[in-house]
């Protein structure tokens, strides 16, 4: 039974004021998406898999040093630079606003990796291996990628699909903020975030918590940044990649009102 489809346009809002750099999202992502275990070697070779990573920047001089955290995952750009350069359409934009990667089309030119300004695409330089005792923890909903393939954050499309099947097709409901949370259909990082720094939702849903931010940022583009009503901004907005991820600036209490760090 296929009911009429609901138009979704997924989006994420990252509140930098709430992120405390705990890396729970990184672990959750690693487990959910069958990422190979990053050992010492993979970091030494600069080949670690981090579909979501917490970048840590130090700000200020001793003794007033502050750690600033920014979680970076695939931004699911509307104008994704990675898409036009793939010769085999292994990466394309689907009708739910996601930039998706089709593993068995990928031939490994790595052009998309070069062309991603956010550096969130990962190439399998080695065949992925898990220790014997972790073989059974692999998520059956997610493909285990072989070597020679580029992979990246999918906004946990397997969870969204399960949600669409369970909520929309079976019960005739709608996958909105409430049902996403109730059935654990949001991405693993969002579910794991202890401070609710990551918020996931449907931009087409009027009640979605992400909607006001996307509306605000879309309305006032980079040239009218000052007129924005919210703290929202897009990373590397000058590239005009139009990400479906919006960051909220950190509020710095020392600077007083109107000055957002």
């Amino acid at each position: 039974m296929v009911t009429s489809r609901i138009d979704h346009k997924w989006g994420m809002v990252v509140d930098l004021d709430r992120c405390n750099g705990c890396q729970a999202c990184v672990v959750a992502c690693q487990v959910e998406n069958n990422l190979p275990i990053n050992d010492k070697n993979s970091f030494l070779q600069n080949r670690a898999y981090e579909w979501i990573r917490i970048e840590r920047y130090w700000e200020g001089d001793y003794p007033n040093i502050k750690a600033r955290f920014i979680p970076v995952m695939c931004q699911h750009c509307e104008n994704a630079p990675c898409e036009p350069v793939c010769p085999v359409f292994a990466t394309y934009r689907n009708d739910e606003g996601l930039n998706v990667q089709i593993y068995n089309r990928c031939v490994g030119t790595r052009y998309c990796i070069n062309n991603c300004p956010y550096q969130v695409r990962f190439f399998n330089y080695w065949h992925p291996n898990w220790p014997e005792r972790l073989q059974n923890q692999l998520n059956p909903d997610v493909t285990v990628r072989t070597r020679g393939i580029t992979e990246k954050c999918t906004f946990c499309i397997q969870r969204l699909r399960r949600g669409q099947i369970q909520v929309e097709r079976r019960n005739g409901g709608e996958l909105n903020d409430g049902t996403l949370k109730a059935g654990n259909h949001m991405p693993a990082c969002v579910q794991a975030c202890p401070t609710n720094a990551l918020v996931f939702g449907d931009q087409n849903d009027v009640h979605s918590p992400v909607k006001p931010y996307f509306e605000d940022v879309n309305k006032y583009n980079i040239h009218h940044e000052k007129e924005r009503k919210t703290r929202g901004y897009r990373v590397l907005e000058e590239m005009n990649t139009k990400p479906n991820v919006i960051y909220l600036k950190k509020v710095d209490p020392n600077l007083g009102d109107g000055h957002h760090g």
């Binding site: 600069n46 080949r47 790595r110 990796i113 330089y125 070597r147």
Partner: peptide, 13 residues
């Protein structure tokens, strides 16, 4: 696998 080369995450070519 291409791991035997010196290529890494930012330097894919």
């Amino acid at each position: 696998g291409l791991g035997v080369t010196g290529l890494n995450r930012p330097v894919a070519w």
